Simulated scan of single mutants.
Amino acid sequence: MHLQQLETPCALLDLPRVQRNIQRMQQHMNRLGVKFRPHAKTSKCIEVVLAQLAAGAQGITVSTMKEAEVFFSAGIKDILYAVCISAAKLPRALALRRQGCDLKILVDNERSALQVCEFGRAHQERFEVWIEVDTDGHRAGIDPAGEELLTVATMLQEGGSKVGGVLTHAGSSYELHSPEKLAALAEQERAGCVLAGRRLNQAGIRCDNVSVGSTPTAFAAAHLEGVSEVRAGVYVFFDLVMHNVGVCEMDDIALSVLTTVIGHQREKGWVMVDAGWMAMSRDRGTANQQRDFGYGQPCTLDGMPIAGFTMIGVNQEHGIIAPDISMQSIDITQKFPFGTQLRILPNHACATGAQHAVLYACDAEGDATPWERFQGW
């Protein structure tokens, strides 16, 4: 099916861009001499993840048990579940391991560590548990220099679990936009996680894995001494937030939403399209960056950004595209005739992707193949 035949709105993947993005990251990791474990939460798509593994990735990262189950059923065994495990999810983790999945789980506090150990003993299972450390104050994790790190690791080891490694995520990198600041944060991320691993080893608790990662810091890292692996996810699609951060160009963004012009509000200068927040999401990730793209950047059908126009608003099934001051003299009915198909680049690829059960993978000729993008937890 050609993309012009697709019913709108729908999610498009530009396959040449996807393949280029995968190669770019993998080659960078190869140069730095580390294992690359891509995060599958952005795509939630078997075809995309298989392409990442074919390029040289080793294992995957997931953020839901559903992801772990689906990717294991597709033959992928080396899986890291990178969210602090809750007790309610331990039976599903056990089931995966009993089926042969090399699943690693994560904790970042004493209570979670205790629950894992108690469940493991009750079911004669020695879970491999990684410990999350906080290297930038962004979200979760234990202080890599604090006593709690050793307390949690000791609880796990004495409680019958295997301490598999330490992990961190420099999510605050999304707030930066200069090479110097990104490089500094990448080094802070590396140094903090390496410190945590070193402290465990010095305490007699074997720590074989030091895992860092975010798309911006992965690209910004000058070296990764002491790191065993890197995780990143949004790089495979990129988005407008990543463009503002400075790690991709507009023509690297591989995910877009195909939409159709369904009307005009001439007195307001608005172009109405059939992609609202149900197709784009409500994510306004660029609002606090140096350039605000509203709800997305309109492009022509062949993917070229349309200068001077932004998706300024969304209702459930309506999107509003409007010109900036420099374009307000243009006749919008002539520039965007009724029935015109457009692509909208998203602020946040993960959020926009989550609105769609199918990704239409388009080759250079515009031929589209449906790839399932699964949902749920």
Rank of each mutant, 00 (worst) to 15 (best):
V49F: 03
A51G: 10
A51T: 01
A51F: 02
L53D: 07
L53P: 10
A54E: 15
A54G: 15
A54V: 01
A55F: 07
G56S: 12
G56C: 09
Q58M: 08
Q58G: 04
Q58Y: 06
Q58E: 15
Q58C: 10
Q58A: 13
I60M: 07
T61A: 14
V62M: 07
V62F: 11
S63V: 11
S63L: 08
T64R: 08
T64Y: 05
M65Q: 05
K66L: 09
K66F: 05
K66M: 14
E67Y: 05
E67R: 01
A68Q: 08
A68P: 09
E69L: 10
V70H: 04
V70Y: 01
S73A: 15
K77S: 15
D78P: 07
D78S: 12
I79C: 10
L80T: 00
L80G: 01
L80N: 07
L80D: 04
A82R: 03
I85L: 15
S86I: 10
S86V: 12
A88W: 07
P91M: 02
R92G: 01
R92D: 10
A93W: 01
A93P: 03
A95F: 01
L96F: 05
R97H: 04
R98E: 15
G100S: 08
G100P: 13
K104M: 11
K104G: 10
K104Q: 14
D108I: 09
N109K: 09
N109F: 05
E110Q: 14
E110P: 00
E110H: 09
S112I: 02
S112M: 06
S112A: 14
Q115A: 15
V116A: 06
C117R: 05
C117V: 10
E118V: 12
E118M: 14
F119A: 06
G120D: 04
G120T: 05
G120F: 00
R121M: 14
A122V: 02
A122H: 03
H123R: 08
Q124F: 03
E125C: 12
E125V: 03
R126A: 14
R126C: 14
R126N: 11
R126P: 08
R126E: 15
F127C: 01
V129D: 04
W130S: 03
I131N: 00
D134R: 02
G137Q: 09
R139K: 13
A140Y: 07
A140F: 11
G141K: 04
G141N: 09
G141I: 06
I142E: 00
I142T: 09
D143Y: 11
D143L: 12
P144W: 04
A145K: 12
A145T: 11
G146Q: 07
G146M: 10
G146W: 06
E147F: 01
E147G: 07
E147S: 12
E148S: 11
E148I: 11
L149F: 10
L149C: 10
V152W: 03
A153V: 06
T154Q: 11
M155Q: 13
M155R: 12
L156A: 07
Q157G: 08
Q157W: 01
G159R: 06
G160V: 08
S161M: 15
S161H: 03
S161G: 08
K162T: 13
K162C: 10
